[in-house]
């Protein structure tokens, strides 16, 4: 079985990991409360989705 011959340097590891990037979530505005929300999801600020209310969707600032 092929195995690495040398330990990978910290520099190389970090150079590889520098390409790990995140992308910002694509948000839409809630038609009910004008807050930002993920599309196809109940609004986290007012809890509505297509005119229906979902208490489970509500989020406070740090939850």
């Amino acid at each position: 079985m092929a195995v690495p011959k040398r330990k990978m340097s910290r520099s190389n590891t970090r150079a590889r990991r520098s390409q790990w990037k995140t992308t910002a979530a694509n948000l839409t505005t809630c038609p009910q409360c004008k807050g930002q929300k993920l599309s196809h999801t109940a609004c986290p600020t007012c809890g509505t989705y297509k005119g229906r209310q979902y208490a489970a969707a509500l989020r406070t600032e740090h939850a």
Binding site: T41, Y54, A56
Partner: peptide, 14 residues
């Protein structure tokens, strides 16, 4: 089924 965002503990989509 209506999506309601992610769970706090393990970020599971609920």
């Amino acid at each position: 089924i209506t999506k309601v965002g992610n769970r706090k503990g393990d970020n599971a989509p609920m």
